[in-house]
Amino acid sequence: MRWILSAVALFALVGCGSSESAEPEAPASPSASASPTPAVTPEAASPTGAPEPQALSEFRCSAGEDGSPWTASGLLSNSGKDAATYQVSVYVGPLDGDTREVRTLRIDPINPGESDRFDLDDVPAGGDTCHVQVLRTP
C-alpha cells in the first residue's frame, strides 16, 4: 500500500521541474508584421498510461560516491500479450507535495514474454529516499 501511495504522489511530480515558461513572451515592441510567439511545450509531458509496478524487478537506486548524482537501474518484463512501451520515473527525496524534478525514461517496446534492462543517471536528489513509478504507456 505504501508503494502505491508513493507511486500516486510521484505521478503528480512527473513532468514538473521544467524551468521553461508555458506562457508565450510578448514581443518587445508591437509591429504590424509581428507574429505571436508560440507557447513553449514543457520538456516532459505529464505521464499517460496505466501504473504497472509488477513489470519492475531488480530495482536499485543509490547515491554516487562523494556527493555525485544518484543512479537507478532495473529490469522491466512484459507479461502481457502485446508489445508494450514503458515509462520509468525516479525521484529521490520526500513526498511532501512540493514540485520536484523527476528523472524519466521512456523504454522502447518490449515484446511479450521479454525483458529489458534500464539505467538512469543523474537522478535528482532532494533527500535520501528513492521513489519509482512504472507506467505502461499507450
Rank of each mutant, 00 (worst) to 15 (best):
P42T: 11
P42H: 06
E43M: 12
E43S: 15
A44C: 03
A45L: 07
A45S: 14
A45E: 15
S46H: 12
S46D: 14
P47S: 00
P47Y: 12
P47F: 09
T48C: 12
T48E: 15
T48R: 13
T48D: 15
G49L: 00
G49Y: 07
A50W: 06
P51C: 03
P51S: 02
P51E: 01
P51T: 08
E52V: 08
E52T: 01
E52W: 00
P53N: 02
P53V: 00
P53K: 04
Q54W: 08
Q54E: 14
A55F: 01
A55G: 12
A55N: 06
A55E: 07
S57H: 09
E58T: 13
E58Q: 15
E58R: 11
F59L: 09
F59I: 03
F59Q: 11
R60G: 06
R60L: 04
R60E: 14
C61M: 00
A63K: 05
A63S: 05
G64L: 11
G64P: 15
G64R: 05
G64K: 05
G64V: 06
E65Q: 14
D66C: 06
D66H: 12
D66F: 07
D66V: 08
D66I: 04
G67E: 13
G67I: 00
S68W: 14
S68I: 12
P69G: 08
P69E: 13
P69L: 11
W70E: 13
W70G: 02
W70Q: 07
T71L: 07
T71A: 00
A72W: 02
A72Q: 09
A72P: 15
A72C: 12
A72G: 07
S73W: 02
S73F: 05
S73K: 03
G74V: 03
G74Y: 01
G74T: 04
G74H: 07
G74C: 03
L76R: 04
L76Q: 00
S77E: 09
S77C: 09
N78E: 13
N78Q: 11
S79Y: 10
S79V: 06
G80D: 11
G80C: 07
G80Q: 02
G80L: 03
G80I: 06
K81N: 07
D82W: 02
A83I: 08
A84R: 01
A84Q: 01
T85G: 05
T85Q: 10
Y86T: 01
Y86H: 01
Q87F: 01
Q87Y: 05
V88A: 11
V88T: 10
V88L: 04
V88R: 12
S89I: 04
Y91H: 09
Y91K: 06
V92E: 00
V92N: 05
G93R: 00
G93N: 13
G93Q: 11
G93D: 14
G93C: 05
P94S: 10
P94G: 13
P94Q: 11
P94E: 14
L95G: 04
D96S: 07
D96N: 10
G97Q: 07
G97H: 08
D98A: 10
D98M: 11
T99N: 15
T99Y: 10
T99S: 14
T99V: 14
